[in-house]
Amino acid sequence: MSKNFALTGTERFFEVSEIIVSKTDLKGRVTYCNKQFIDICGYSEKEMLGQPHSIIRHPDMPRCVFELMWETLQNDEEIFAYVVNRCKNGDHYWVNAHITPSKDQSGTIVGYHSSRRVPDRAIVDTVIIPLYRQLLAEENAHANRKEGQKASRAMLDGILKSKGITYHQFAATL
């Protein structure tokens, strides 16, 4: 499935009472998506199932945050993160995501479960957007994507270290 990378600059919103839910396999391919997810992203269930969750990746989302997410999940830990996603038509929406590993009866990780809620707008505007712009500027300052991601991750780790907190403590204090 080809991705439409045109951005409209239009933000979509959802109700505080709604929870956007999706599940993926170990490779990040969508295995389940609820009605709220389908409604806000603009893809049908048929279009989403089997596709990489990154189909909704917004270019303003720093790659180093996804790297941190994957590291955390693969270490069998949950993570909370503010994420901006891209809709099928190029609109975008912000979420406060809670992502956890899904396990089978023997305790083996078989996929991931994400529940997304309406984020605190003041935090998005005053903390997250400025931080993500800073991380993206660092990523984009390098010709090589991997080097840019590595540099922005070092920047994020440095910011957290300077505050004397882990990412989990940072997310919990927002």
Rank of each mutant, 00 (worst) to 15 (best):
G111I: 06
T8S: 09
S106M: 09
A171W: 00
T100C: 10
G148W: 00
N144Q: 03
L131C: 12
I55K: 05
F13R: 10
P62D: 01
I123T: 10
L26P: 14
E15V: 12
G42L: 11
Q134I: 01
S102A: 09
G107I: 08
G50F: 09
A122D: 12
V118F: 01
M61F: 05
I20S: 13
M48L: 15
F170R: 04
K103G: 06
L131W: 04
H58I: 06
G50V: 11
V21A: 13
V110I: 15
C41Q: 09
K103H: 14
K3M: 00
N75H: 10
H142W: 01
S106D: 07
G9D: 03
N34V: 07
Q51R: 13
K46M: 11
I99F: 02
K46P: 10
Q74E: 12
T126I: 09
S44P: 15
D104Y: 13
E45V: 09
N75Y: 01
V84L: 05
S17T: 15
T126Y: 05
I129M: 14
I40L: 12
T8A: 10
M48R: 09
M69V: 13
S2W: 12
Y167F: 15
Q36E: 12
A143C: 02
G107E: 07
K150L: 03
A122E: 15
Y132W: 13
G42I: 12
P52A: 07
S44L: 07
E147N: 02
L26Q: 08
L49N: 11
R86T: 00
P119R: 02
P52Y: 04
G107R: 06
R121Q: 03
F66E: 03
T166M: 07
I40M: 10
R57W: 09
S114I: 03
M48E: 11
F66G: 07
A171D: 10
S162E: 06
R117F: 04
G158T: 13
K161A: 13
K3Y: 12
V16F: 03
E139N: 07
H98K: 14
W70G: 04
E147L: 12
A81K: 04
G158M: 07
I56M: 01
